Amino acid sequence: MRPGDLNFRHLLYFWAVAREGSITRAAQTLGLSVQAISTQLSQLEAQLGHTLLVPRSRGLVPSETGRLVLGYADQIFQLGAELREVLDRAEPPERRLVVGLTDPIPKLVAFHLLEGVLRPEAGYRLTCIEGELDDLIADLVLNRLDVVLSHRPVVPTANLKVYARPLGNWAMALYGTDALCAHYQPQFPARLGEAPLLLPMPESPLRLALEEWFRRHRLAMKVRAECADSALLKTFGCAGVGLFAAPACLADDMARQYGVRQVGVLDGVSDSFYAISTERRIQHPALQAIVASAPDVAR
């Protein structure tokens, strides 16, 4: 007999009869008929090839083989009782959300998109991993990530089943230190042709939009630095190295966290961010909340 062939319900009936000393009392304890238990015991003995219970006085006691089986049954059902106690005391399983972030995603944007997940009542343990988009997508496909927050979408193909959902259009503004604001804010944007600029990389959608805006206003671009990492751009910016673009709706956050002020809003320039997942229809409640809240956050 293979281990998987053992019927543990039959073993439970034997265990109850051996402890109670009779089929009648075991039937009362289990809420079953005497006939049902008697039939199951016969099937267990036939399966094991041994007599497990023998008559004595007015009851039944385990045979020599029955005492051996009873010892194992005691351990099995004791462990089962302990398992129930542990599960009754256990806290609800921890809910986790693993998010991949591309470097161009502003950290304040990521925070506001994930803010709902971070609330204690949401009950999530959040893990954030930064990296290149291609690497993050590979981890997403391998189920190492639940979602990727990206500065650009990914188009699904026959071999790549991922789906990008827009997280709003974020109107952009230029920010700088008090000294830079004092110089370039008056008569905005006329003086920007001489302003030191901190820009994202040339292949970035935001960089292309910024270049088009400067061309439209017939202004030269004086590039002081260009970085793929938005956090590094802000570090340079709060040190007074130059002006940089960030969402206009985050002016208060930018002043509080980075000590920079809004120089002016870049009319017609917006940046878009995307939630990329492997679900055609989002089932994960945290992802549903992120996508649903994005339009309000981007205002």
Rank of each mutant, 00 (worst) to 15 (best):
L6C: 10
N7V: 07
H10P: 05
W15Q: 03
A18D: 00
A27R: 10
Q28G: 06
L32A: 11
L32C: 14
I37V: 09
Q40H: 07
Q40N: 11
S42A: 15
E45C: 02
H50I: 07
L52R: 15
S57C: 13
G59R: 00
R67F: 02
V69P: 00
G71C: 05
Q75P: 00
Q78M: 09
L79Q: 12
E82N: 06
D88V: 08
R89S: 10
R95T: 07
L97K: 04
L101M: 15
I105Y: 09
P106E: 13
F111I: 03
G116I: 09
G116A: 08
G116R: 10
R119I: 01
R119H: 14
Y124T: 04
R125K: 01
T127K: 13
E132M: 14
V141F: 11
L142I: 02
L142R: 14
V147N: 00
P153R: 03
T157D: 11
Y163N: 11
A164L: 01
A164G: 09
R165E: 06
P166R: 07
G168S: 08
A173M: 08
A173I: 05
L174F: 12
G176W: 00
A179D: 15
A179L: 13
Q185V: 11
R191N: 13
L192V: 14
E194P: 02
P200K: 06
P200Y: 10
P202I: 14
E203G: 05
A209L: 01
W213P: 03
R215K: 15
H217G: 03
L219D: 05
M221Q: 14
R224L: 10
D229W: 02
L232Y: 10
L233H: 09
T235I: 06
F236P: 06
G242P: 01
L243T: 01
A246Q: 11
P247F: 00
L250S: 12
L250A: 13
Q257R: 14
Y258N: 11
G259A: 07
Q262H: 00
V263W: 12
V263N: 11
G264Y: 02
L266N: 09
L266S: 09
D267N: 12
V269E: 03
A275V: 03
Q283P: 08
P285G: 13
P295T: 10
R299G: 12
R299E: 03
